[in-house]
Design a binder for these strands. Structure first.
Lengths: 226, 226
DNA sequence: ACCTGAACACCGTTCAAGT
DNA sequence: ACCTGAACACCGTTCAAGT
Protein backbone atom coordinates (compact mmCIF):
# COMPACT_ATOMS: atom_id res chain seq x y z
CA UNK A 1 0.00 0.00 0.00
CA UNK A 2 1.44 3.29 -1.00
CA UNK A 3 1.41 6.22 1.38
CA UNK A 4 -1.12 8.56 -0.14
CA UNK A 5 -1.11 10.93 2.82
CA UNK A 6 2.31 11.72 4.21
CA UNK A 7 2.48 11.47 8.01
CA UNK A 8 3.93 14.92 8.46
CA UNK A 9 2.44 16.89 5.62
CA UNK A 10 4.76 19.73 4.63
CA UNK A 11 1.65 21.87 4.34
CA UNK A 12 0.10 22.26 0.96
CA UNK A 13 0.41 25.62 -0.72
CA UNK A 14 -2.37 27.78 0.65
CA UNK A 15 -5.14 28.49 -1.89
CA UNK A 16 -4.92 31.83 -3.59
CA UNK A 17 -6.53 34.81 -1.80
CA UNK A 18 -7.59 32.72 1.17
CA UNK A 19 -5.62 35.12 3.35
CA UNK A 20 -6.55 38.74 3.99
CA UNK A 21 -5.98 41.52 6.50
CA UNK A 22 -9.14 40.76 8.50
CA UNK A 23 -8.34 37.08 8.96
CA UNK A 24 -4.85 38.03 10.07
CA UNK A 25 -6.11 40.53 12.63
CA UNK A 26 -8.66 38.04 13.97
CA UNK A 27 -5.94 35.46 14.46
CA UNK A 28 -3.64 38.04 16.07
CA UNK A 29 -6.28 39.08 18.60
CA UNK A 30 -7.11 35.47 19.39
CA UNK A 31 -3.43 34.72 19.89
CA UNK A 32 -2.99 37.75 22.16
CA UNK A 33 -6.08 37.06 24.27
CA UNK A 34 -5.47 33.34 24.66
CA UNK A 35 -1.72 33.11 25.05
CA UNK A 36 -0.50 36.60 25.91
CA UNK A 37 1.69 39.16 24.22
CA UNK A 38 4.84 37.03 24.41
CA UNK A 39 3.13 34.35 22.28
CA UNK A 40 2.27 36.90 19.61
CA UNK A 41 4.89 35.88 17.10
CA UNK A 42 4.98 36.16 13.34
CA UNK A 43 5.68 32.46 13.15
CA UNK A 44 2.88 31.53 15.57
CA UNK A 45 0.49 33.85 13.77
CA UNK A 46 1.22 32.26 10.39
CA UNK A 47 0.95 28.77 11.86
CA UNK A 48 -2.47 29.55 13.32
CA UNK A 49 -3.52 30.73 9.87
CA UNK A 50 -2.17 27.53 8.29
CA UNK A 51 0.18 29.48 6.08
CA UNK A 52 3.88 30.06 5.60
CA UNK A 53 5.42 32.70 7.84
CA UNK A 54 6.12 35.10 5.03
CA UNK A 55 2.57 35.01 3.64
CA UNK A 56 1.55 37.55 6.28
CA UNK A 57 4.03 40.03 4.85
CA UNK A 58 1.98 40.23 1.66
CA UNK A 59 -0.75 41.96 3.69
CA UNK A 60 1.16 43.93 6.32
CA UNK A 61 4.49 45.68 6.23
CA UNK A 62 5.57 43.90 9.42
CA UNK A 63 4.73 43.12 13.02
CA UNK A 64 4.47 46.75 14.08
CA UNK A 65 1.85 47.46 11.46
CA UNK A 66 -0.18 44.48 12.66
CA UNK A 67 0.13 45.64 16.26
CA UNK A 68 -1.15 49.07 15.35
CA UNK A 69 -4.02 47.64 13.33
CA UNK A 70 -4.99 45.35 16.23
CA UNK A 71 -5.00 48.29 18.65
CA UNK A 72 -7.02 50.35 16.21
CA UNK A 73 -9.62 47.66 15.71
CA UNK A 74 -10.02 47.00 19.43
CA UNK A 75 -10.33 50.68 20.30
CA UNK A 76 -13.11 50.96 17.72
CA UNK A 77 -15.13 48.23 19.47
CA UNK A 78 -15.59 50.27 22.64
CA UNK A 79 -19.29 50.51 23.28
CA UNK A 80 -20.70 53.95 24.00
CA UNK A 81 -23.92 54.47 25.98
CA UNK A 82 -26.94 56.03 24.22
CA UNK A 83 -26.73 59.81 24.19
CA UNK A 84 -29.09 62.42 25.53
CA UNK A 85 -30.18 60.91 28.83
CA UNK A 86 -29.96 64.37 30.35
CA UNK A 87 -27.54 63.07 32.97
CA UNK A 88 -24.03 63.80 31.68
CA UNK A 89 -22.48 62.48 34.86
CA UNK A 90 -24.01 59.02 34.48
CA UNK A 91 -23.16 58.94 30.79
CA UNK A 92 -19.58 59.91 31.52
CA UNK A 93 -19.35 57.03 33.95
CA UNK A 94 -20.59 54.64 31.30
CA UNK A 95 -18.09 55.85 28.72
CA UNK A 96 -15.21 55.34 31.16
CA UNK A 97 -16.52 51.91 32.07
CA UNK A 98 -16.64 51.02 28.38
CA UNK A 99 -12.97 51.83 28.01
CA UNK A 100 -12.13 49.94 31.18
CA UNK A 101 -14.07 46.89 30.04
CA UNK A 102 -12.30 46.74 26.70
CA UNK A 103 -8.89 46.75 28.35
CA UNK A 104 -9.99 44.17 30.88
CA UNK A 105 -11.33 41.84 28.22
CA UNK A 106 -8.24 42.27 26.04
CA UNK A 107 -5.39 42.60 28.52
CA UNK A 108 -2.70 41.97 25.97
CA UNK A 109 -4.08 44.75 23.81
CA UNK A 110 -3.23 47.05 26.66
CA UNK A 111 0.26 45.60 26.80
CA UNK A 112 0.50 46.20 23.07
CA UNK A 113 -0.51 49.83 23.49
CA UNK A 114 2.08 50.42 26.18
CA UNK A 115 4.78 48.85 24.03
CA UNK A 116 4.09 50.63 20.77
CA UNK A 117 4.64 54.38 20.81
CA UNK A 118 1.54 56.52 20.55
CA UNK A 119 0.09 57.28 17.12
CA UNK A 120 -2.83 59.28 15.86
CA UNK A 121 -5.04 56.21 16.14
CA UNK A 122 -6.73 56.99 19.40
CA UNK A 123 -10.34 56.15 20.06
CA UNK A 124 -11.62 59.31 18.43
CA UNK A 125 -15.31 58.87 19.13
CA UNK A 126 -14.65 58.05 22.78
CA UNK A 127 -12.57 61.19 23.23
CA UNK A 128 -15.16 63.35 21.51
CA UNK A 129 -17.97 61.92 23.58
CA UNK A 130 -16.14 62.37 26.88
CA UNK A 131 -15.17 65.95 26.10
CA UNK A 132 -18.74 66.77 25.14
CA UNK A 133 -20.10 65.34 28.37
CA UNK A 134 -17.53 67.18 30.48
CA UNK A 135 -18.47 70.49 28.88
CA UNK A 136 -22.13 69.67 29.26
CA UNK A 137 -21.47 69.07 32.94
CA UNK A 138 -20.30 72.67 33.24
CA UNK A 139 -16.51 72.50 32.91
CA UNK A 140 -14.58 75.16 31.04
CA UNK A 141 -12.65 74.21 27.93
CA UNK A 142 -9.36 73.78 29.77
CA UNK A 143 -11.00 72.02 32.69
CA UNK A 144 -12.68 69.60 30.31
CA UNK A 145 -9.38 68.78 28.62
CA UNK A 146 -7.67 68.24 31.97
CA UNK A 147 -10.51 66.10 33.25
CA UNK A 148 -10.53 63.95 30.13
CA UNK A 149 -6.82 63.23 30.32
CA UNK A 150 -7.02 62.46 34.03
CA UNK A 151 -9.92 60.04 33.53
CA UNK A 152 -8.13 58.24 30.71
CA UNK A 153 -4.95 57.98 32.75
CA UNK A 154 -6.81 56.55 35.72
CA UNK A 155 -8.68 54.10 33.51
CA UNK A 156 -5.56 52.86 31.74
CA UNK A 157 -3.70 52.63 35.02
CA UNK A 158 -6.45 50.60 36.66
CA UNK A 159 -6.74 48.15 33.80
CA UNK A 160 -2.99 47.71 33.66
CA UNK A 161 -2.75 47.24 37.41
CA UNK A 162 -5.43 44.55 37.39
CA UNK A 163 -3.94 42.81 34.38
CA UNK A 164 -0.56 42.59 36.07
CA UNK A 165 -2.13 41.34 39.27
CA UNK A 166 -4.19 38.72 37.46
CA UNK A 167 -1.19 37.48 35.49
CA UNK A 168 0.79 37.11 38.70
CA UNK A 169 -1.94 35.38 40.69
CA UNK A 170 -2.82 32.78 38.07
CA UNK A 171 0.86 31.87 38.13
CA UNK A 172 1.92 29.11 40.48
CA UNK A 173 2.29 29.87 44.15
CA UNK A 174 2.78 33.62 43.79
CA UNK A 175 -0.24 34.18 46.00
CA UNK A 176 1.37 32.18 48.82
CA UNK A 177 4.70 33.92 48.37
CA UNK A 178 3.10 37.37 48.66
CA UNK A 179 1.09 36.23 51.66
CA UNK A 180 4.26 34.90 53.32
CA UNK A 181 6.13 38.11 52.56
CA UNK A 182 3.41 40.18 54.19
CA UNK A 183 3.28 37.91 57.23
CA UNK A 184 7.04 38.29 57.65
CA UNK A 185 6.81 42.08 57.68
CA UNK A 186 7.78 43.72 61.00
CA UNK A 187 4.56 45.30 62.23
CA UNK A 188 6.44 47.95 64.21
CA UNK A 189 8.13 49.23 61.07
CA UNK A 190 5.13 48.96 58.75
CA UNK A 191 2.14 49.11 61.11
CA UNK A 192 -0.43 50.40 58.63
CA UNK A 193 0.49 47.96 55.88
CA UNK A 194 0.51 44.94 58.18
CA UNK A 195 -2.76 46.01 59.75
CA UNK A 196 -4.55 46.76 56.48
CA UNK A 197 -3.16 43.88 54.42
CA UNK A 198 -6.43 41.93 54.47
CA UNK A 199 -8.42 44.96 53.29
CA UNK A 200 -5.81 45.61 50.60
CA UNK A 201 -6.24 42.05 49.34
CA UNK A 202 -10.01 42.05 49.55
CA UNK A 203 -10.42 45.37 47.80
CA UNK A 204 -8.39 44.20 44.80
CA UNK A 205 -10.26 40.92 44.55
CA UNK A 206 -12.93 42.61 42.44
CA UNK A 207 -11.06 44.88 40.05
CA UNK A 208 -14.16 46.31 38.38
CA UNK A 209 -15.80 47.30 41.67
CA UNK A 210 -12.56 48.92 42.84
CA UNK A 211 -12.33 50.80 39.54
CA UNK A 212 -15.88 52.13 39.90
CA UNK A 213 -15.21 53.42 43.41
CA UNK A 214 -12.12 55.28 42.27
CA UNK A 215 -13.96 56.53 39.21
CA UNK A 216 -16.73 57.96 41.38
CA UNK A 217 -14.18 59.71 43.56
CA UNK A 218 -12.38 61.18 40.58
CA UNK A 219 -15.56 62.34 38.87
CA UNK A 220 -16.72 63.88 42.15
CA UNK A 221 -13.40 65.68 42.50
CA UNK A 222 -13.45 66.88 38.91
CA UNK A 223 -17.07 68.00 38.65
CA UNK A 224 -17.57 68.92 42.29
CA UNK A 225 -20.96 70.43 43.08
CA UNK A 226 -21.62 71.39 39.47
CA UNK B 1 57.97 45.78 13.47
CA UNK B 2 55.81 43.26 15.23
CA UNK B 3 52.22 44.08 16.15
CA UNK B 4 52.31 44.36 19.92
CA UNK B 5 48.75 45.66 20.19
CA UNK B 6 46.21 44.00 17.91
CA UNK B 7 43.94 46.50 16.12
CA UNK B 8 40.77 44.86 17.28
CA UNK B 9 41.60 43.58 20.74
CA UNK B 10 39.63 40.44 21.49
CA UNK B 11 39.11 41.88 24.98
CA UNK B 12 41.44 40.76 27.71
CA UNK B 13 40.06 38.46 30.33
CA UNK B 14 38.34 40.67 32.91
CA UNK B 15 40.22 40.83 36.23
CA UNK B 16 38.88 38.56 38.91
CA UNK B 17 36.01 39.88 41.06
CA UNK B 18 35.84 43.18 39.18
CA UNK B 19 32.20 42.40 38.47
CA UNK B 20 29.44 42.33 41.05
CA UNK B 21 25.65 42.62 41.37
CA UNK B 22 25.73 46.36 42.07
CA UNK B 23 27.85 47.24 39.06
CA UNK B 24 25.56 45.13 36.89
CA UNK B 25 22.43 46.87 38.18
CA UNK B 26 23.99 50.30 37.70
CA UNK B 27 24.81 49.47 34.11
CA UNK B 28 21.34 48.04 33.54
CA UNK B 29 19.62 51.17 34.81
CA UNK B 30 21.90 53.39 32.74
CA UNK B 31 21.16 51.30 29.68
CA UNK B 32 17.41 51.47 30.33
CA UNK B 33 17.33 55.21 30.99
CA UNK B 34 19.57 56.18 28.09
CA UNK B 35 18.51 53.82 25.35
CA UNK B 36 15.14 52.41 26.34
CA UNK B 37 13.85 49.00 27.27
CA UNK B 38 14.42 47.52 23.81
CA UNK B 39 18.17 48.24 24.16
CA UNK B 40 18.31 46.37 27.46
CA UNK B 41 19.99 43.23 26.21
CA UNK B 42 22.22 40.73 27.95
CA UNK B 43 24.81 41.26 25.25
CA UNK B 44 24.62 45.07 25.43
CA UNK B 45 24.75 44.94 29.21
CA UNK B 46 27.89 42.80 29.20
CA UNK B 47 29.51 44.99 26.57
CA UNK B 48 28.88 48.11 28.64
CA UNK B 49 30.55 46.33 31.54
CA UNK B 50 33.50 45.36 29.33
CA UNK B 51 32.93 41.71 29.99
CA UNK B 52 31.86 38.57 28.14
CA UNK B 53 28.14 38.05 27.83
CA UNK B 54 28.08 35.05 30.11
CA UNK B 55 29.94 36.73 32.95
CA UNK B 56 26.69 38.33 34.07
CA UNK B 57 25.20 34.89 34.63
CA UNK B 58 27.65 34.32 37.46
CA UNK B 59 25.81 36.99 39.45
CA UNK B 60 22.20 36.67 38.31
CA UNK B 61 20.17 33.69 37.27
CA UNK B 62 19.07 35.47 34.08
CA UNK B 63 17.51 38.57 32.58
CA UNK B 64 14.29 38.29 34.57
CA UNK B 65 16.17 38.30 37.85
CA UNK B 66 18.05 41.42 36.78
CA UNK B 67 14.80 43.10 35.77
CA UNK B 68 13.27 42.37 39.15
CA UNK B 69 16.35 43.62 40.98
CA UNK B 70 16.35 46.83 38.94
CA UNK B 71 12.69 47.43 39.74
CA UNK B 72 13.31 46.71 43.40
CA UNK B 73 16.24 49.11 43.61
CA UNK B 74 14.38 51.91 41.86
CA UNK B 75 11.28 51.53 44.00
CA UNK B 76 13.47 51.83 47.08
CA UNK B 77 14.81 55.20 45.92
CA UNK B 78 11.40 56.89 46.14
CA UNK B 79 11.78 59.87 48.41
CA UNK B 80 9.22 60.26 51.18
CA UNK B 81 8.39 63.64 52.72
CA UNK B 82 9.21 64.23 56.43
CA UNK B 83 6.48 62.87 58.66
CA UNK B 84 4.34 64.57 61.25
CA UNK B 85 3.57 67.89 59.58
CA UNK B 86 0.07 67.61 60.96
CA UNK B 87 -1.35 67.93 57.46
CA UNK B 88 -1.93 64.38 56.18
CA UNK B 89 -3.50 65.69 53.00
CA UNK B 90 -0.37 67.62 51.98
CA UNK B 91 1.88 64.71 52.95
CA UNK B 92 -0.23 62.31 50.92
CA UNK B 93 0.18 64.58 47.93
CA UNK B 94 3.95 64.53 48.39
CA UNK B 95 4.10 60.75 48.63
CA UNK B 96 2.14 60.38 45.39
CA UNK B 97 4.35 62.96 43.69
CA UNK B 98 7.41 61.01 44.80
CA UNK B 99 6.12 57.90 43.09
CA UNK B 100 5.19 59.87 40.00
CA UNK B 101 8.62 61.48 39.83
CA UNK B 102 10.43 58.17 40.03
CA UNK B 103 8.48 56.76 37.12
CA UNK B 104 8.95 59.95 35.12
CA UNK B 105 12.69 59.95 35.66
CA UNK B 106 13.01 56.24 34.87
CA UNK B 107 10.41 55.66 32.18
CA UNK B 108 11.82 52.34 31.12
CA UNK B 109 11.61 51.10 34.70
CA UNK B 110 7.88 51.57 34.35
CA UNK B 111 7.91 49.61 31.12
CA UNK B 112 9.84 46.93 32.95
CA UNK B 113 7.25 46.78 35.70
CA UNK B 114 4.39 46.43 33.22
CA UNK B 115 6.22 43.65 31.41
CA UNK B 116 7.25 41.54 34.37
CA UNK B 117 4.40 40.00 36.34
CA UNK B 118 3.84 41.40 39.81
CA UNK B 119 5.88 40.05 42.68
CA UNK B 120 6.01 40.77 46.38
CA UNK B 121 8.63 43.42 45.78
CA UNK B 122 6.40 46.45 45.98
CA UNK B 123 7.52 49.70 47.51
CA UNK B 124 6.65 48.60 51.03
CA UNK B 125 7.46 51.82 52.84
CA UNK B 126 5.50 53.89 50.33
CA UNK B 127 2.44 51.71 50.76
CA UNK B 128 2.68 51.81 54.54
CA UNK B 129 3.08 55.56 54.56
CA UNK B 130 0.14 56.16 52.25
CA UNK B 131 -2.16 53.88 54.18
CA UNK B 132 -1.19 55.59 57.44
CA UNK B 133 -1.92 59.02 56.03
CA UNK B 134 -5.25 57.94 54.61
CA UNK B 135 -6.34 56.55 57.98
CA UNK B 136 -5.05 59.68 59.68
CA UNK B 137 -7.19 61.72 57.29
CA UNK B 138 -10.24 59.92 58.65
CA UNK B 139 -10.92 57.08 56.24
CA UNK B 140 -12.12 53.70 57.45
CA UNK B 141 -9.91 50.67 56.93
CA UNK B 142 -11.64 49.60 53.74
CA UNK B 143 -11.86 53.15 52.44
CA UNK B 144 -8.15 53.62 53.05
CA UNK B 145 -7.31 50.44 51.13
CA UNK B 146 -9.57 51.50 48.24
CA UNK B 147 -8.12 55.00 48.18
CA UNK B 148 -4.55 53.71 48.20
CA UNK B 149 -5.13 51.41 45.24
CA UNK B 150 -6.95 54.13 43.30
CA UNK B 151 -4.13 56.62 43.88
CA UNK B 152 -1.47 54.14 42.80
CA UNK B 153 -3.44 53.22 39.70
CA UNK B 154 -3.88 56.86 38.74
CA UNK B 155 -0.19 57.57 39.36
CA UNK B 156 1.04 54.62 37.31
CA UNK B 157 -1.44 55.42 34.55
CA UNK B 158 -0.32 59.05 34.38
CA UNK B 159 3.36 58.22 34.25
CA UNK B 160 2.79 55.60 31.59
CA UNK B 161 0.63 57.93 29.53
CA UNK B 162 3.26 60.64 29.59
CA UNK B 163 6.06 58.23 28.83
CA UNK B 164 4.26 56.96 25.78
CA UNK B 165 3.48 60.47 24.63
CA UNK B 166 7.06 61.62 25.10
CA UNK B 167 8.45 58.64 23.22
CA UNK B 168 6.10 59.33 20.31
CA UNK B 169 6.76 63.09 20.17
CA UNK B 170 10.54 62.88 20.20
CA UNK B 171 10.20 60.57 17.24
CA UNK B 172 10.36 62.10 13.78
CA UNK B 173 7.33 63.91 12.44
CA UNK B 174 4.76 62.20 14.65
CA UNK B 175 3.70 65.58 15.99
CA UNK B 176 2.87 66.80 12.49
CA UNK B 177 1.07 63.60 11.61
CA UNK B 178 -1.16 63.86 14.68
CA UNK B 179 -1.79 67.54 13.98
CA UNK B 180 -2.72 66.71 10.39
CA UNK B 181 -5.01 63.91 11.51
CA UNK B 182 -6.85 66.23 13.87
CA UNK B 183 -7.17 68.92 11.23
CA UNK B 184 -8.68 66.39 8.85
CA UNK B 185 -11.35 65.38 11.36
CA UNK B 186 -14.93 66.25 10.33
CA UNK B 187 -16.02 68.83 12.90
CA UNK B 188 -19.68 67.92 12.48
CA UNK B 189 -19.00 64.35 13.54
CA UNK B 190 -16.53 65.13 16.33
CA UNK B 191 -17.41 68.71 17.34
CA UNK B 192 -16.02 68.59 20.89
CA UNK B 193 -12.75 66.97 19.94
CA UNK B 194 -12.09 69.34 17.05
CA UNK B 195 -13.01 72.32 19.16
CA UNK B 196 -10.97 71.33 22.19
CA UNK B 197 -7.94 69.91 20.37
CA UNK B 198 -5.72 72.89 21.26
CA UNK B 199 -6.58 72.63 24.96
CA UNK B 200 -5.99 68.88 24.82
CA UNK B 201 -2.52 69.48 23.42
CA UNK B 202 -1.66 72.33 25.76
CA UNK B 203 -2.79 70.50 28.88
CA UNK B 204 -0.54 67.54 28.11
CA UNK B 205 2.46 69.73 27.37
CA UNK B 206 3.33 69.79 31.07
CA UNK B 207 2.77 66.24 32.33
CA UNK B 208 3.64 66.98 35.95
CA UNK B 209 1.22 69.90 36.23
CA UNK B 210 -1.55 67.82 34.64
CA UNK B 211 -0.80 65.00 37.07
CA UNK B 212 -1.06 67.33 40.05
CA UNK B 213 -4.44 68.67 38.92
CA UNK B 214 -5.83 65.16 38.58
CA UNK B 215 -4.26 64.17 41.87
CA UNK B 216 -5.96 67.07 43.64
CA UNK B 217 -9.29 66.07 42.14
CA UNK B 218 -8.88 62.44 43.17
CA UNK B 219 -7.77 63.30 46.71
CA UNK B 220 -10.69 65.71 47.01
CA UNK B 221 -13.08 63.00 45.83
CA UNK B 222 -11.59 60.40 48.15
CA UNK B 223 -11.27 62.48 51.31
CA UNK B 224 -14.18 64.84 50.67
CA UNK B 225 -14.86 67.28 53.46
CA UNK B 226 -13.01 65.19 56.04
C1' DA C 1 -0.39 39.17 -7.19
C1' DC C 2 0.26 36.14 -3.64
C1' DC C 3 2.75 32.60 -1.26
C1' DT C 4 7.11 29.82 -0.42
C1' DG C 5 11.68 28.25 2.03
C1' DA C 6 16.40 29.50 2.83
C1' DA C 7 19.20 32.73 4.95
C1' DC C 8 20.65 36.76 7.92
C1' DA C 9 21.25 39.27 12.03
C1' DC C 10 19.57 39.37 16.22
C1' DC C 11 17.95 37.44 21.07
C1' DG C 12 18.35 34.58 25.97
C1' DT C 13 20.44 30.78 27.67
C1' DT C 14 23.02 25.95 28.13
C1' DC C 15 27.25 23.83 28.19
C1' DA C 16 31.97 22.39 28.46
C1' DA C 17 36.02 24.48 29.04
C1' DG C 18 39.58 27.65 30.73
C1' DT C 19 41.91 30.17 34.91
C1' DA D 1 34.83 30.77 42.07
C1' DC D 2 34.51 33.47 38.26
C1' DC D 3 34.82 34.29 33.42
C1' DT D 4 35.12 32.55 28.49
C1' DG D 5 33.46 31.31 23.48
C1' DA D 6 30.81 28.04 20.85
C1' DA D 7 26.42 26.36 20.16
C1' DC D 8 21.24 25.95 20.48
C1' DA D 9 16.63 27.34 19.91
C1' DC D 10 14.27 31.14 19.23
C1' DC D 11 12.92 35.92 16.98
C1' DG D 12 11.68 39.58 12.85
C1' DT D 13 12.73 40.34 8.35
C1' DT D 14 15.23 40.28 3.46
C1' DC D 15 15.60 37.95 -0.64
C1' DA D 16 15.19 35.19 -4.71
C1' DA D 17 12.25 32.02 -6.32
C1' DG D 18 7.96 29.56 -7.33
C1' DT D 19 2.87 29.79 -9.07
Amino acid sequence: MSVTQPVRSPRRRAPRNSLNADRILDAAIRLLDCHGAEAFTMRALAQQLGVGTMAVYSHFRGKDEISDAVAQRLLDTIELPPAGSGDPRAELREVCLGVYRLFSEHPSALQLLTLRPMRGDDAISVIDRMLGLLCEAGLSRTEAARAHVALMQYTVGSALWNTRRARALCDDGVRDRVRAKIDALPSDRYPSLVSLAPELMRVQENGAAQYERGLDAMVEGLLGGR
